[in-house]
Structures are given as structure tokens and as C-alpha cells.
Design a protein around this nucleic acid. Structure first.
Length: 801
RNA sequence: GCCGAAGUGGCGGAACGGCAUACGCGGUGGUCUCAAAAACCACUGAAGGUAAACUUCUUGUGGGUUCAAAUCCCACCUUCGGCACCA
């Protein structure tokens, strides 16, 4: 019989579905395991190999856990709100809901083709009102707790399309669609106060099993800095507060800089004698786009405030104040004390403007460049700090400031609040009403879900409002509080909203009374293993940790951290290591591989092609190697004529392989697990295999190539399903070879090998090694002065003439 | 600039103090065939040597530690990701 993948795969997919073998069991007596993949955005292009890699990997994990006796929750869903769908809808005049529905159907069919063991009865779809009812519900709770608020924020405005662009639509400073320049415009936007959770999001990282690179990236993103806030008196009578991480260098502060947006500037207008010049600088900065600002990054510009001076609190020196856009309004206090001797940016500015550079930490040459080393420095020219180590000086200075009431220890974060509104149609409506009397009023829970109305056009408006703003009969409503006339919020939520909590919904996807029942959450959460891409480290992964932590605080979820273990897969590149893209024409469609070679070959190859955590390039030519592996297995099973439970020739390698595959799956070493099974198959082919050998082999391979294994399982006459068998156990005693080949080195150089019984005593080993002809030749005229033995591996003979 | 990852045969990659190049692809020779494809068997890092025996060299570069280094340490070069005037 021939290995016909198409009919075999269809046959077993149907059989498994008919028996519901991948249904999530409702059996609270068994231990649970929640394996999660990032749900896809169902784009029109369909599933690509970049999805197949993590999905196949976690499918192997989920299948192994089922075989190990766990209740496994391995769900899939659709992160379906988003810009590409909306743009497609605009271009083709099809309702985004219809586009979404079709794309989901396509994606679902593709995942089924690949034989993933998802529980499709628990699918979630973020655009389904039954789902986004709870997204809106969470938003209302955030609002209730003061964590959602409105603020003026700059948005991206395309000067040609005359509309607001999402950040993703701005590429290299220009509009992705028309290529025109994008400028900043102020708009009132909904914000989420993620900064209130900065410290706890940082602390939580210590409790979870994430790769270091993920933790490091999140820590950098949150960006905690410790230092001090210091008040400088000014000649206006106002004080100017700054944040610094280097209070030890306060004696070296020779000028101050304020951000152009600093509110004090307007207040001091009457006193600033060169106000026109300052105003012109402010206007220029406001016009600059982000790109312009970063392009000019190294070239410092600024204007001195004439008529206003500051006083350095440690030495009462009068110092000038500048306005410059290298100081950002949204970090620290929007003003800095400049220490040009010990800060690179201040040094550049001081050099350009001819400002004094004072050395207060010895160790460098501050006339040449700023000396910024905090570790190795001794304070100089610094009054009571002189002679101290910088680290001690920081502590001493903060104590001094606190004592004098001039400042205090302070912590700052780079993390910014989350801009939560989009001027778009295809997103969750924000369940808030603007009442002229009551302000922003939340909708009562009974009015959820607030459904998206059908509109004629999804085009963004030229006023920068969401398309919903044109729906007057939807917008005009009454205030839930006072009953007076009011208007609905017309902005929608960003795509990150649904994905911030979807994993909770899988535990109880049809609940209409809560986002999920407390029992379901208590049983299934936290997620035991969550795999996803590195590109989601600082947005999705951080946002969902934030929402989960908030839901934990209000008693909705039982754990503070949503994911116990996180892993990340590397990207799949095209041949030659280039990124896959339509323009390069090197995109691989999984469907093509499945129809030519079969899903099992596709699954094996995608895991075999390289280290799962690293980027790897697709080699079309190599795919057939995995297909040949399955065909050799097929041939071996067909020619079976030994009914024994095991064959002595294979037993050690079988147990070793079970051990290796069992461990490799846990460590994401799918490539070497497959290589080990190939080695075993090659051995069994040359030694001959018994029925029992093949039975074990099929259960071991089943998570990787379930269809072929299921077919062969039945051809060999076994009952039930191979995918429902127990995971094979290995006997450590049987993993040990009776005879081992020992490498023999002389003075560290490899000179040959010798076969000896395992755990052979050192003296016996030396005897055996020196008995070898080749070794003897190399020992001629030498005497052994020392021997180094690595048990069952190697012997090194150190010799002298 | 800062943070992170990585440089190994013709190619994808294994090994991560102990026989470098597992496994797969490709290549060469053979079996089968009228022939081809497929399949199967053998060989396949480089140089010297006689296609043997054997010898030497080889994990981005240069040093070091060690009986032993692709692996650990120091310096440098290159590539790829992320952040980027965060005081």
C-alpha cells in the first residue's frame, strides 16, 4: 500500500473529530494544563509558515500533555478587529464583519488542514458582541477605578488623506498609503493609566518563567530610574523642579534646561526679555515631526531665557536657564539641571553654547568629553561631598537635600500611559457617554454590549473624528445619569484591547453573566505555557499582564500573573536568510506544502529546520527529507514480521530516544528530538524491528506526525487511537549501554578509541587503552605520568619521554 | 549611542568544558531498470599521501585559562533584532 497523505489525513481528522478526542475534558479530579498560542489576526492572506511554527510546536506540547494524563486546554481564536480589514472593507465596499467572517473561515480551515488539536468548540472572536461585551465591561471597571481618563494627546495626521493615522500606518515618518508627510495634531484621547502599575509589572517578572531576553526587554521598556527631585529657586520667585539620577553631581550643574512645552515658560512671559525668540523656538519645536526631532538628535538647539536665572541650591551660584527640545516634557519634570562634565548631552550643548564645564567626579578629562562612569569615581570640587565615592555621594546628597527641604529621593519610569482610542470604525465602541452636565458617564452594565452600528462608509472623516461620528442617530442619546441629551463616545478601542484578556475567556467562552465563571478561572488559570513572538514583548505581553493584574486587584481573576511560562519562537526567513515578503516573492504557503507532501511532513519540517527560538531560513529542498523519513517508517511497518514485545538489538536506543524526546520537547529542542527519532528509525531499519518496537515508536512520534502514526497504528492492528495512548516511559537502567566506546587522548590529542564495558574501572581502562596498537605506537619511548578519566567517555594519558 | 541575540562543512544545522561537523539536504560511486525517475547500499570538512595506513590543519579575528576550549575569560571585527536626547 502506498503512503497517500491526502486520504489518510482526511480520514483521521474526521475520525478524531467524530470522537471528540480534542474536546477539553471537564474532569476536575485530573491535573490541568493550559497551553496557549497567540491567536492570529485573520488577514486576507491566510495562515503563513510564521504561524505554523509556533502552532505546531505548542500542538506537540499539548498532545504530549494529554498523553501524560492531563486535562488539556489548548484553544484557538481570532483577534479580528483591526486596520487591514477596515482598509480592505473601504477599498472593496464590503462590510468589515463580512470580511472578518470569511477570513476566519479560511484560517480555521487551514489550521484544521494542519491537524492541530485545538478545541474548536471554545473559539473566541474579539469582534463578536458576546465577547466584546466583556472587553467593554473591563473598560468600565478601569474607568470606575480612575485608570481610564481623557487627555490631550498628539495624534498622527496625514496632510494629504486628511485623517488620523494609527502608528502602524506611519512608516518612516510618512503616510503608508499616500507617502505624504505626517504631522502631529493634538486630540483628546482615552488613556489607560498603566504607569500606575509600573512597579508591580516590574516586580511580577521575578515570579514568572520567561526567557531572560523577554524580561530584559520588558524591564528596559518600563525603564525604572532612581534618583532625586531637586528644587532650584529662580529669580521669578517660582522654583523649578528637576529629576536627576546623579544628585552627586549637583555641584557641577552650571545651567538648566526646560522643555519647550514647559508650563512655567508661559507664566514667566512678562519677565523673559527675549520672549519673541523663545516663542519662535517653541513654535518651531511644535511643528517638528518625530522624525525631524530624532534626525536632529545630535545637533543641539536652544535659546537662553533672558531676564530669568536659577540658583544652584548647593552653592547659591546664579546659573542661566535655556529652552531646548532635547529635554522632553513627558519624562521627569520637563526640566533638567545640566551637568556638562558628566552627561554627554549636556556636554554637547554646553560645548556648542560656550557654557562652563566643571569637573566634579575625577577620572576623566571633562574638557575632552563627558565622564559618565558612576562606578569608578571620586568626588572633587563638591564641598562636603569631595573625596567620597560617587555611590556614597548620591546617598549623602539625597540625605542633605531632604534635611534642608530642597529635594527628596524619587523614582521615574520611561513607561507612558497607554493611548487607548482610535478614530476608526472596526474596533470595540467605548461605552461612555458625554453629557454636557455630568461629564463622562459610563454606560450601565445592562446596556452592554454596546454594539457597533452599521454605517454607510468606514472612511475616516476629514475632521479627524471616527466614522461613527457621522451616525447621528447612534451618537445622540440620553445621559444615563441625568437623562438629559448627551452624545456617545465615537472613538473605538485599539486592537490590543481584546487580546489583553482573551485567554481568560477560553476558560468559559459562553458565559453571559461574567467574563468567565470564578470556578473556571480558578481551575484553568494561570496559563501554564504561553508561546508567542518577540514582537509582542513590550505591547501585548505587557498590556495583558496589566489587565490581569487589575482584574486580580478587583477580585475577578485568582492570580496576579496571567502566564506561568512564556517562550518565544524565532522568525522563519526565506531562502538565503531574507525576510519573507510578497515583494521578494519568497513567501511559502503552508497549503502548498500540505497538498504536495502532507500535513505531517509540513509539521515535521517546520520543527526540524532549526532551533525553535532562533530565526531560521526555509529550505524548500530539505522538506523532502522529512517526507522520506515518514516513508521509511511506512516501509518498515509494512514489512514487519516480528511480533515480539521488544527486540534486544534496539532496546537501549529506544529507551535513550524516549528520554531524549521527552526532555527535548520541554526544552523547545524539537529539531533534535526529530533527529533522534530519525537516528532510531535508521537503526531499526538496519537491525530489524519488532511489533513492540514500532508500537513505542508510533506513540513517540504521534505528537509530531499524528496522521501517519494513527494510520500505521491501525494497520499494525492496535485499538483505540494512537493519539490517546499514554506517553511512553523510559527505564533509566535501560538507557545505559553495556559496552561503551572511549576516546583515547595522549597529551590531549585524540589518538583512537577503545571499547570497554560500561563503568569499567580506571586501571582496566588504562590497560585496554594501552593495549591498542595505535596507542602503543604513540607511547613508544614515553612514560605515563598522569591519567585523566572521564567516566564512560574519555581517557587522557599525559606522557613524557 | 544603549540593550539583546548570533557568527561552525557546499547548504539548513548538531554539540555548549571531554572523539567538532549528529540529523537532514546536496554531491560522487554502485544495485535495480532497455532507459529514466523513485528506492536501496557505500563514500562525502580541508590539505598532504597511493582512493590504503598515517600525518597536519579547521568552529569570525587575536590573546588567555585548562590535562583538554566551538563551549569559559579579555580585546576586536561582522551580521541581525529592539530601544533611541528617558536627565
Amino acid at each position: 500500500m502506498k503512503y497517500e497523505h491526502e486520504s489518510i489525513e482526511k480520514k483521521w481528522q474526521d475520525a478524531w473529530a467524530a470522537q471528540g478526542v480534542y474536546r477539553t475534558p471537564e474532569d476536575p479530579t485530573k491535573p490541568k494544563y493550559y497551553a496557549l498560542v497567540e491567536f492570529p489576526y485573520p488577514s486576507g492572506h491566510g495562515l503563513h509558515v510564521g504561524h505554523a511554527r509556533p502552532y505546531t510546536a505548542m500542538d506537540v506540547v499539548a498532545r504530549k500533555r494529554r498523553m501524560q494524563g492531563y486535562n488539556v486546554l489548548f484553544p484557538i481564536g481570532w483577534d479580528a478587529f483591526g486596520l487591514p480589514t477596515e482598509n480592505y472593507a473601504i477599498a472593496n465596499h464590503i462590510h468589515p464583519a463580512k470580511v472578518t467572517h470569511d477570513n476566519i473561515a479560511f484560517f480555521r480551515d487551514q489550521t484544521k488542514l494542519l491537524g492541530y488539536s485545538f478545541d474548536y468548540s471554545r473559539e473566541v472572536d474579539t469582534t463578536d458582541p458576546a465577547f466584546y461585551k466583556w472587553t467593554q465591561w473591563i473598560f468600565l471597571r478601569l474607568f470606575e477605578h480612575g485608570l481610564a481618563y481623557k487627555a490631550q494627546m498628539p495624534v498622527n495626521w496625514c496632510t494629504s488623506c486628511k485623517c488620523v493615522l494609527a502608528n502602524e500606518e506611519v512608516v518612516d515618518g510618512v503616510c503608508e498609503r499616500c507617502g505624504s508627510s505626517v504631522v502631529r495634531r493634538e486630540k483628546s484621547q482615552w488613556m489607560l493609566r498603566i504607569t500606575a502599575y509600573a512597579q508591580r509589572l516590574l516586580d511580577g517578572l521575578d515570579e514568572v518563567d520567561f526567557p531572560d531576553r523577554v524580561k530584559v526587554q520588558q524591564r528596559n521598556w518600563i525603564g525604572r530610574s532612581t534618583g532625586a527631585e531637586v528644587d532650584f529657586r529662580t529669580t521669578t520667585g517660582d522654583t523649578l523642579c528637576v529629576f536627576t539620577t546623579r544628585p552627586d553631581t549637583l555641584f557641577g550643574a552650571t545651567y538648566m534646561v526646560m522643555s519647550p512645552e514647559h508650563p512655567n515658560l508661559g507664566r514667566w512671559r512678562e519677565r523673559i526679555t527675549n520672549w519673541a525668540e523663545v516663542k519662535a523656538y517653541q513654535d518651531l519645536s511644535a511643528q517638528k515631526s518625530d522624525i525631524e526631532r530624532s534626525e536632529m538628535q545630535r545637533d543641539k538647539t536652544g535659546v537662553e531665557l533672558k531676564g530669568v536665572r536659577a540658583i544652584n541650591p548647593v552653592n547659591d551660584a546664579e546659573i542661566p536657564i535655556y529652552v531646548s527640545d532635547y529635554v522632553l516634557m513627558n519624562y521627569g519634570t520637563g526640566a533638567i539641571m545640566a551637568v556638562p562634565g558628566h552627561d554627554t548631552r549636556d556636554w554637547e550643548f554646553a560645548t556648542k553654547f560656550g557654557l562652563p564645564i566643571v569637573e566634579v567626579v575625577a577620572g576623566g578629562n571633562v574638557q575632552e568629553q563627558a565622564f559618565t562612569d558612576v562606578q569608578n569615581g571620586v568626588m572633587v570640587n563638591s564641598g562636603f561631598l569631595s573625596g567620597m565615592q560617587t555611590s556614597d555621594a548620591i546617598v549623602a546628597m539625597i540625605a542633605w537635600l531632604e534635611e534642608k527641604g530642597l529635594g527628596h529621593a524619587s523614582i521615574n519610569f520611561k513607561l507612558r500611559d497607554w493611548v487607548f482610542s482610535r478614530q476608526r470604525y472596526w474596533g470595540e465602541p467605548i461605552p461612555i457617554v458625554h453629557c454636557p452636565k455630568c461629564g463622562y458617564v459610563p454606560l450601565p452594565e445592562s446596556e452592554l454590549p454596546l454594539k457597533l452600528p452599521n454605517v454607510e462608509s468606514y472612511e475616516p472623516t476629514d475632521t479627524g473624528e471616527s466614522p461613527l461620528a457621522k451616525m447621528r442617530d447612534w451618537v445622540e442619546t440620553s445621559c444615563p445619569r441625568c437623562g438629559g441629551p448627551a452624545e456617545r463616545e465615537t472613538d473605538t478601542m485599539p486592537q490590543w484591547a481584546g487580546s489583553s484578556w482573551y485567554f481568560l475567556r477560553y476558560t468559559d467562552p459562553y458565559n453571559d453573566a461574567a467574563l468567565a465563571s470564578p470556578e473556571a478561572l480558578a481551575y484553568w488559570t494561570p496559563v501554564d505555557w504561553y508561546n508567542g513572538g518577540m514582537e509582542h514583548t513590550t505591547l501585548h505581553l505587557l498590556y495583558s499582564r496589566f489587565w490581569n493584574l487589575f482584574l486580580y486587584d478587583i477580585g475577578v481573576v485568582p492570580t496576579s500573573e496571567p502566564y506561568r511560562k512564556r517562550t518565544s519562537h524565532g522568525m522563519i526567513l526565506g531562502e538565503g536568510g531574507e525576510k519573507m515578503s510578497k515583494s521578494r516573492g519568497n513567501v511559502v504557503n503552508p497549503n502548498d506544502i500540505v497538498s504536495e507532501y502532507g500535513a505531517d511532513t509540513m509539521r515535521l519540517y517546520i520543527l526540524f529546520l532549526g532551533d525553535f527560538e532562533k530565526a531560521a531560513s526555509w529550505q524548500q529542498n530539505d522538506v523532502k527529507g522529512c517526507r522520506r523519513f515518514l516513508e521509511r517508517l511506512w516501509t518498515l511497518c509494512e514489512n514487519l514480521n516480528d511480533d515480539a514485545a521488544y527486540s534486544p538489538a534496539n532496546i537501549t536506543l529506544i529507551h535513550k530516544t524516549i528520554k531524549k524526546v521527552t526532555e527535548d520537547i520541554e526544552n523547545l529542542k524539537f529539531n533534535t528530538a526529530i533527529a533522534a527519532m530519525m537516528t532510531l528509525l535508521n537503526e531499526m531499519t538496519s537491525n530489524g524491528a519488532s511489533k513492540g518496537d514500532l508500537k513505542t515508536f508510533l506513540t513517540l512520534l504521534a505528537p509530531f506526525a499524528p496522521h501517519s502514526c494513527e494510520e500505521l497504528w491501525h494497520q499494525l492492528g492496535f485499538e483505540s487511537f494512537v493519539v490517546c495512548q499514554s506517553w511512553p516511559a523510559y527505564d533509566p537502567a535501560l538507557c545505559i549501554d553495556q559496552e561503551v566506546e572511549i576516546a583515547v587522548q595522549i597529551n590531549g590529542k585524540f589518538r583512537g578509541t577503545v571499547w570497554v564495558p560500561a563503568d569499567c574501572p580506571d586501571e582496566e581502562l588504562v590497560k585496554a587503552a594501552t593495549a591498542e596498537e595505535r596507542i602503543q605506537r604513540n607511547l613508544e619511548g614515553m612514560r605515563i605520568v598522569k591519567t585523566i578519566v572521564v567516566k564512560n567517555k574519555l581517557i587522557n594519558l599525559l606522557v613524557k619521554p
